[in-house]
Computed example of a mutant assay.
Amino acid sequence: MNENMTETGADRRTQLRERLIEAAQEIIAAHGLAALKARDLAAAAGCALGAIYTAFGDLDELILRVNARTLARLEAAIDSALGDAAAEQSLQAMARTYLTFARKEEPSWRALFEHRLPPGAAPPQWYVDARNRLFNRLDGPLSRLLPGTSHRAREAFARTLFSAVHGVVALGLDEKIAETPPKMLDEQLEKLVRVLADGLMMESTRLI
């Protein structure tokens, strides 16, 4: 009987966690991360305010769970865009997919970068793993583009490439520097990846 009661309690907690994640995901997707307030979240999930902290250690953990789902959707979109194309074409496809995802799910996409953990706090390993899986998607095209380079060197290239693509996408969507119509942003991203791919091949000859 005690075991059944324990299992029932665990099931309730799992269901509560799922309701809270889904409610938080909907709030962020509709209104952005800044709109996520504990009291409104509890009302949306149909639970008491204190129940949030029974299901999660704090709001940071809950936000990371939502962001992990965003990363998973982005990962799935990138996987569906990849094929047997040449290295640069694969990188172009990944960059276009990233831009398309950012446009389609902008509030959720922005939440990936707007959320900050308290000073000194490190993200849990499960979240680091989810984030790193995206960087690992770049290793295949980069290994074909940069034959003979080490995995560590390709990891550095992957982060450089992502940072450049993300910067163009973020600034283009913000339009803080200049107005960037969708077609212009598409063209800028294509040129960036082409220039970076050419530059990486030149750099690889120095590092091999």
Results as ranks from 00 to 15, higher is better:
L171S: 09
I177Y: 11
E187K: 08
R12G: 08
A156Q: 08
W126A: 09
A95C: 02
G167R: 13
A122D: 02
F135H: 13
A153W: 11
R137L: 09
G57S: 11
P141V: 07
T54I: 14
A23M: 07
A111G: 08
Q25E: 15
A170E: 15
V168T: 10
L200Y: 05
R110Q: 10
R133K: 13
R12Q: 13
P123V: 05
E105L: 12
E155V: 03
D60F: 12
G199D: 00
R73D: 11
E114Q: 14
A30E: 04
G9S: 13
R194C: 07
D186I: 07
A43E: 10
L173Y: 05
G140D: 08
V169D: 00
V195T: 11
N67Q: 13
A81M: 06
D139I: 15
L142T: 01
Y53T: 06
A34L: 04
P124H: 08
D174K: 02
P147Q: 06
R13E: 15
H31V: 11
A42Y: 00
K176E: 08
Q125S: 03
G120N: 06
D186R: 03
A10P: 07
E179T: 15
A38L: 02
S150I: 09
M184L: 15
R19G: 01
S143C: 10
F101N: 06
G120H: 03
T149V: 07
A197I: 06
G9D: 14
Q188L: 14
D58W: 04
L91M: 02
L82Q: 14
L16A: 12
N4I: 09
I28G: 00
G83L: 04
A111P: 01
K191C: 04
G9I: 10
G50H: 06
R159D: 01
F113K: 06
V193G: 00
N136C: 10
E88P: 04
E18Q: 14
L41W: 00
I52T: 06
I63V: 14
G83M: 03
E18Y: 05
W109Y: 15
G172A: 03
A87K: 10
M184R: 14
G148H: 07
L74A: 10
G83N: 02
G172Q: 03
Q92H: 11
L99W: 04
G50W: 09
A72L: 06
D40P: 02
N132R: 14
I52K: 02
F157Q: 05
R116I: 04
P124Q: 07
L207I: 13
D198Y: 12
S80L: 12
M202D: 12
G9P: 03
T54L: 14
G140K: 12
A158S: 10
A130N: 05
L146E: 00
Y98G: 13
V193Q: 00
D60K: 11
G32K: 00
S150T: 14
L189D: 00
M1R: 06
P118F: 07
L173M: 05
E88I: 11
E203A: 14
P182V: 11
A76Q: 12
G32P: 03
